[in-house]
């Protein structure tokens, strides 16, 4: 692949890939590492993809798999089944969201289980249809729909709760078994110091 083509690909997708990675890892440095790792995979293998129109889906799929691979190497996040018994969706005014900053919305999203975070983030990035989300996450379309529906419900509850308390959603505290990419993280920290 020509350098120019690669650079165009990076320019077109690195920001939303990073945002998706951030929603998965909940850590800036890990999200940056995961994004970089995804493009390195492309540099190594992506040229095999004949249909270049599928590059975007390939990148998001690869990033998600890299994330899951990292999870397998460490301890899995506990999977928390959300209670979907609540029939009534809480009503959240768009103005409430408009009054928040992006970081606060992200913190609310980060409070959800990864089962819901991943499809919601892909949905809100506005890059993918639900069929593409199903392909990236490797789950049936019906599951994407139900996760989006429940995830939106949970996200609203988080935002409303934070508004009721008069605070922004609590800062996410990563669990003890959060994924880390020690080698690159340490390099990054060293560079910052």
């Amino acid at each position: 692949m020509k350098d120019r083509e690669f650079e165009d690909l990076v320019s077109a997708h690195y920001e939303n890939l990073y945002r998706f990675a951030f929603s998965l890892c909940r850590s800036e440095s890990e999200a940056a590492d995961l994004t970089q790792q995804t493009f390195l995979r492309w540099a190594q293998r992506g040229f095999q993809l004949r249909d270049r129109s599928k590059a975007k889906t390939w990148l998001f799929t690869t990033l998600y798999r890299e994330f899951l691979g990292g999870q397998r190497r460490t301890t899995r996040f506990p999977h928390i089944e959300m209670d979907d018994a609540g029939a009534e969706l809480p009503y959240l005014e768009p103005e409430t969201v408009n009054a928040m900053d992006g970081q606060s919305v992200m913190e609310a999203l980060n409070g959800l289980d990864e089962t819901y975070r991943a499809p919601l983030m892909l949905f809100y990035l506005k890059e993918h249809s639900y069929t593409e989300i199903a392909s990236i996450l490797d789950i049936p379309i019906g599951t994407v729909m139900s996760r989006l529906s429940r995830g939106k419900d949970q996200l609203r509850k988080k935002i409303l709760d934070s508004q009721t308390r008069g605070t922004s959603p609590s800062k996410f505290q990563p669990p003890e078994n959060v994924i880390t990419f020690p080698a690159t993280n340490e390099r990054r920290k060293a560079a910052n110091e």
């Binding site: 690195y14 970089q36 493009f39 969201v97 408009n98 992006g102 919305v105």
Partner: peptide, 29 residues
């Protein structure tokens, strides 16, 4: 509401050096 959330999530800042790190990393692969 979706539009409002989309707009907010697109505000999440991306590290300024990320693009150059990606391009530099790919050159050695």
């Amino acid at each position: 509401l979706d539009a409002a959330l989309c707009a907010k999530l697109s505000e999440i800042p991306v590290p300024a050096s990320l693009k150059s790190e990606i391009l530099a990393g790919a050159r050695v692969i």
